[in-house]
Design a protein around this nucleic acid. Structure first.
Length: 262
DNA sequence: ATGGTGGGTGTCCCA
């Protein structure tokens, strides 16, 4: 089962790239972030025509996540638990039926949090605390779980081309990184990191539109795939579809993926 | 220190 995550920065602006990438990358399950539309505005038919089922958790103008699957799906759940007043669409999870295992797939779009300090950073940290609670509950199921998406967290200096430029950014502040570590240290495996445990740089998943960041390879690693122990046992490979950043009208993120023997 | 770029349904906000 190949599971991918892609922050597409607006599904309507990116539908050509998305429908080209899907048959090329051949994932079985995809979670999308920043669809930037309400459910009714999502171009589901164009994706269904390619053989996919589509579930959305949309929102007007900003945020919004979706789950696409070629495999049977059960029990789609929308919204991160822990705050009934939270209007922001940043979480979708479901059970995906592989040939051998049912896999829990949770797609997330963690708040950016800038500027820090401030109310947006407070919201980010509160959201990460709710994520920690949900992640612990998912681990308790002892099922294979893949929790993936745009975490808006640069875990370590080696995850940025120029870490010194990020020291005051909400994506790299010590409190942000500590909150991310608290989740990982529950027992999750960072699939892109363990694929190259001693790598000194990257792999990057985001390059800013500004200042020729892509041309200079001034990137950061903020899209992550966290695997529960039962999913990590099944892991075959993981990677970053870096060439998607060089397409016409690209997103500022590229797809990340993991293959598990499920 | 500044402003640079891109998407949305927007004449500003968010990343």
């Amino acid at each position: 089962m190949k599971i991918a995550s892609f922050n597409i920065n607006g599904v309507k602006a990116r539908i050509a790239q998305l429908t080209a990438w899907l048959p090329e990358a051949q994932p079985d399950v995809v979670v999308l972030q920043e669809i930037k539309t309400v459910d009714e505005g999502f171009p589901a038919e164009m994706i269904e025509d390619l053989g996919w089922q589509v579930w959305t958790h949309g929102q007007k103008s900003w945020n919004g996540v979706a789950l696409l699957s070629r495999l049977p799906v059960e029990d789609v759940r929308r919204g991160l638990p822990g705050d009934d007043g939270d209007e922001q669409a940043r979480w979708i999870e479901a059970e995906v039926m592989g040939a051998r295992h049912a896999v829990t797939v949770a797609g997330l779009y963690l708040p950016n949090g800038n500027p820090a300090p401030g109310p947006k950073y407070d919201y980010k940290l509160a959201w990460m605390e709710r994520l920690r609670a949900r992640a612990a509950a998912l681990l308790d199921t002892e099922a294979p779980v893949v929790m993936l998406g745009d975490y808006n967290v640069i875990p370590e200096p080696r995850d940025a081309a120029h870490p010194e430029r990020w020291v005051e950014d909400a994506l790299f502040l010590p409190e942000t990184r500590a909150a991310f570590r608290r989740i990982v240290n529950q027992g999750w495996t960072d699939a892109l990191r363990i694929r190259d445990p001693h790598g000194t740089r990257g792999p990057f998943t985001f390059w800013d539109y500004q200042r020729q960041a892509w041309e200079r390879d001034n990137g950061i690693r903020i899209d992550h795939l966290l695997l529960s122990p039962q999913a990590a046992d099944l892991m075959r490979d993981a990677g970053v579809d870096r060439d998607q950043r060089a397409t016409e009208k690209p997103s500022d993120h590229v797809p990340v993926w993991v293959e598990i023997d499920a």
